[in-house]
Nucleic acid binder design. Structure first.
Length: 902
RNA sequence: GCUUGGGUGGCGGAAUAGGUAGACGCACAGGACUUAAAAUCCUGUAUCCUUCGGGGUGUGCGGGUUCGAUUCCCGCCCUAAGCACCA
């Protein structure tokens, strides 16, 4: 054992040993409880960033902890290796996207290994390899058979910058999720997966995972699915063959309708367009055009509308209502038409005010209902959107909203002009991408047979090895230009046919990658169901909460389809989800205005922080920042990345401080859910801590490895010959050390179970400090001193394993005298014993009128009366109570005494 | 605008079935060791007053409940994230 701690040396040693012994390789084993620890897989961009280090350090800590608790722990990793950056690199630099990706994977795998993360590398998967995407295609065919995959022409979200189609989720807020560019609309034939078929299950099954998922994630998913229960009501119009169907959640307000408002894209508008005046057409076109523009997030859009002159009949009141086109009605939601009830809906209210439409109150607050007996227009200051009692509604007057909703829906149903209905905000998932670097959609277009699914035995439909990638023909994949790829034969009739050239959204890959880890060599099936039956569901999943509605909804959907395919027998793939906060850092940039579109805010050009001169106020906030050539720069705190120049290279940190120190530091710095503003200043403390532990073990190694009369071996050390702990043996100092040891065991166990990682590191530091406070030298130590130290040191080392595995392994090997490793020696997390953690003496604060005045020492068995007596006998307390009347004494058992005086 | 988190020393952060606020670390200061430095070890560090025994104040702000509130309740302010015409 070296006297000094050489991180590099021990890290190399143990990384080699782990690899050679297959320390983290696991198989199905029914004799052990299983634990599936999963972290979100990285995109192989070329370099790990600190966010990865954080994510994977947490995952590895849990994996180690569970191993030490006797679980059969599956801890795999892979690569989300399809996607745009590879294609961009290919276009920009002429590299082959496959080579670029493979190189990046190799480099990043090395980075992960240098961090000493304990993965079962045999199970690695990469999305871009045909062995994997074969099954993307396999699943697509299954879903096609099940009617879950279909094609339709649709207006898609289109990002002009990326030349890419975006899903609703990816275009959320009208901005491209990747580049932030404004999203426009484009008509394209697209493949969809029927996520809406599982909308109810996606919502209802949340009860199964509530316990393990953060409420904020579930809430976002709930909002995203947006189930809304109400009714369809048909308004007959003499001007059109079909009635206008509206969706409403407030059928009880129907007597208050003053108009029907439809979206500009509504079929009735198309049908009657010819008959409209030029003026009306212009107004409608203007509304349409405005909608295609990016909506500024900050500003509320002014409501616009135009009366079409068409009329529709309210089926309840028989009243004739005007049909308007309104910019606030969305064609995508519900039926694209609403009944406007200004008195009871804020938007309709605003609209009616603007265009002077009548506002009629038909719902009243219950205690005011009797005042609404005449049909007069009430001067409402604002819409009343609460439930209440119906007024001015004929037969329905006096009913509550709840009653009326039920009965009026039923009435509509029995009379054939409506029905109860549930609508969703959730759309089907458009998976077509006009891109090269993704899994080809296994569909063939045949002149005679039409759309034909590929045969399973023809999978995988492979991407060509070489392809010319350039900006591409707008709206088609670069694959369309590859004759060899496009031309094929029809799987049905054998005639010449053409392939689908769109590829799948890369979120398809991440839907099921963690199932592939279970059985990644399987060439027949995505995975063997019996392996999934053992390992799944995932016990702990860790990743960023930016995936709350995309990846995590898609993968839940995917699991439900797999359940229907008979591949798995459960509804929910992930029992417990931990969302980690971003690692962020200061960025400095200059804004270069975009000449084509001066309003878009321009492009940011980033400057590395090392080249920026910064002036700060007393609180450390940046006042001014200047580049090296004196240009004033703007600053922000943003997610760390290489392109923004605020990234820290994990390799550099590992090189300087060691992987263990880097890992301890990132876990210790802040709770995982918090954002972590990167500040390297604390990492020295992590190194110092490891060195302190090292030096202590070095000093005591010889003494601790001597055979002991009290106990031998690691776990036995806690027990005496009868299996009982020698709780009272030894002097009071050694007794105190044992107390600290066991208190620490409890704390760390509780912390890790509740997914806290900063506090257990603090607890380990305390235990290490307690060892230094124990002023005994190896040469003069008594048997019971050695015993207490051995117990503390062994516990410390084992509890250190999840955080600093290399250091722990090396120190452990020094103590047990073999190099086989912690796992091969079947070491276990130290066992907590309450009787040892219990203090002999407890300190009881004594308050007077709620203010701390003194402390007394008492036995942990002291009764309330004992504590009261002790408190009153205390000199300081006597001083404070002297001459005053004691009104009351409150004793909190074993915690506190409060004396109330006058 | 709506929803949900969060405001604690110079800094990251501990501690809430209501019960010693500031664990642990960083930074800083003083001391020991050293020819010197680094490393290491020890001591101190919320703030104000102090006769050095202590005392006052303090967990974003203002109220309330309580013997006692960082924790519970009411009303504000600030901040981060998500959503934003969803009928």
């Amino acid at each position: 054992m070296d006297e000094k701690y050489f991180a590099k040396k021990i890290e190399d040693k143990w990384q080699t040993k782990w690899r050679e012994s297959g320390a983290f390789e696991v198989e199905v084993n029914n004799d052990k409880p299983k634990f599936y620890q999963l972290e979100m897989l990285p995109y192989p961009s070329g370099n790990l960033h600190m966010g990865h280090v954080r994510n994977y350090s947490v995952g590895d800590a849990i994996a180690w902890y569970k191993r030490l608790k006797g679980f059969n722990v599956l801890h795999p990793i892979g690569w989300d290796s399809f996607g745009q950056p590879a294609e961009d690199a290919a276009i920009k630099r002429g590299v082959n996207p496959r080579d670029w990706t493979e190189e990046n994977i190799n480099h990043m795998r090395g980075q992960l290994q240098r961090l000493g993360l304990g993965y079962d590398w045999r199970r690695e998967m990469a999305a871009h390899r045909p062995e994997y995407y074969k099954f993307d295609q396999w699943f697509f065919l299954k879903m096609y058979e099940m009617g879950l995959a279909y094609k339709k022409k649709t207006q898609v979200n289109w990002c002009e910058n990326d030349k890419a189609v975006l899903s609703n989720e990816q275009a959320s807020g009208g901005l491209c999720w990747r580049c932030g560019n404004a999203v426009t609309k484009k008509d394209l034939e697209q493949w969809f997966l029927k996520t809406t078929a599982y909308a109810d299950q996606l919502l209802d099954d949340m009860t199964e995972i509530e316990a393990g998922w953060a409420e904020k994630v579930l809430k976002r998913q709930r909002d995203w699915i947006g189930r809304s229960e109400g009714a369809f009501v048909d308004f007959i119009t003499n001007y059109w063959s079909k009635p206008i169907r509206v969706f409403t959640t407030r059928i009880d307000t129907i007597y208050g309708a003053n108009a029907i408002v439809v979206a500009a894209e509504h079929p009735i508008i198309e049908a009657k367009y010819e008959t409209f005046s030029a003026e009306l057409r212009v107004a409608i076109e203007k509304i349409k055009a405005e909608k295609l523009k990016v909506t500024d997030h900050e500003a509320e859009v002014e409501k616009e509308g135009v009366d079409t002159g068409l009329k529709a009949i309210n089926p309840f009141s028989q009243e004739e209502l005007p049909v308007w086109v309104g910019n606030y009605v969305m064609i995508e939601y519900g039926t694209g038409a609403v009944m406007s009830v200004p008195a009871h809906d804020e938007r309709d209210f605003e609209f009616a005010k603007k265009y002077n439409l009548p506002i009629r109150q038909v719902i009243s607050e219950p205690h005011l209902a009797h005042e609404h007996h005449t049909m007069q227009v009430l001067a409402l200051e604002q819409a009343f959107s609460d439930y209440g009692v119906l007024v001015h509604s004929d037969y329905w007057n006096g009913k509550t909203s709840e009653q009326a909703k039920k009965e009026m829906t039923h009435h509509a149903e029995t009379h054939g002009f409506g029905e109860g209905a549930t609508t969703y905000r959730l759309r089907d998932w458009g998976i077509s991408r006009q891109r090269f670097w993704g899994a080809p959609i296994p569909i063939v277009y045949c002149e005679t047979c039409g759309i034909v699914a590929e045969k399973y035995e023809n999978l995988p439909i492979e991407l060509p090895e070489q392809i010319v990638l350039d900006e591409g023909i707008e709206g088609t994949s670069p694959l369309a230009k590859d004759e060899n790829f496009v031309n094929t034969v029809c799987p049905n009739c054998g005639e010449a046919a053409k392939r689908e050239t769109d590829t799948m959204d890369t979120f398809v890959d991440s839907c099921w990658y963690y199932f592939r880890y279970l059985d990644n060599k399987n060439s027949e099936m995505p995975f063997a169901p019996e392996k999934a039956a053992y390992w799944m569901p995932v016990d702990q999943y860790i990743g960023g909460d930016d995936h709350a509605v995309m990846h995590l909804i898609y993968t839940r959907f995917w699991t439900k389809t797999m359940c229907d395919m008979g591949l798995v027998k459960f509804n929910e793939p992930v029992k417990r989800l931990l969302t980690q906060g971003m690692v962020i850092g200061e960025t400095f940039f200059d804004v270069i205005p975009n000449e084509d579109d001066p309003e878009s805010g321009g492009k940011r050009v980033y400057y590395p922080p090392s080249s920026v001169t910064v002036e700060r106020d007393a609180k450390g906030k940046i006042i001014t920042a200047k580049s090296a050539d004196g240009k004033p720069l703007k600053s922000a705190i943003e997610r760390m990345s290489k392109s923004k120049g605020n990234g820290v290279d994990p390799d550099e940190m590992v090189e300087i401080y060691g992987a263990d120190a880097a890992r301890i530091f990132i876990l210790f710095a802040a709770p995982v859910e918090n954002e972590l503003v990167w500040n390297e200043a604390g990492i020295e403390g992590a190194v110092r801590f490891l060195q302190r532990v090292w030096r202590f073990v070095f000093k005591w190694k010889a003494k601790l490895s001597e055979p002991s009369a009290v106990a031998d071996g690691l776990n036995a050390a806690i027990l005496d010959a009868d299996g009982n702990p020698p709780a009272t043996a030894g002097g009071s100092d050694s007794r105190k050390l044992r107390q600290k040891t066991h208190q620490t065991i409890k704390r760390i166990e509780e912390n890790l179970e509740s997914l806290q990682f900063n506090t257990p590191v603090a607890a380990l530091m305390e235990l290490s400090n307690a060892l230094y406070d124990f002023k005994v030298e190896p040469e003069t130590a008594s048997e019971s001193d050695v015993f207490a130290i051995r117990e503390a040191v062994e516990s410390l080392i084992l509890m250190l394993t999840p955080f600093a595995p290399h250091t722990a392994e090396e120190l452990y090997s020094q103590i047990v005298g073999n190099d086989r490793g912690i796992l091969a020696n079947e070491a276990r997390f130290p066992e907590f014993r309450a009787e040892l953690a219990r203090a002999d003496e407890i300190e009881i604060p004594v308050q007077i009128n709620g203010k701390l005045r003194s402390r007394v020492l008492a036995s942990p068995d002291a009764t309330n009366e004992d504590l009261e007596k002790l408190a009153l006998a205390d000199a300081k307390i006597i001083e404070h109570t002297d001459g005053k009347q004691i009104v009351k004494i409150i004793v909190v058992p074993k915690r506190l005494v409060n004396i109330v005086v006058k």
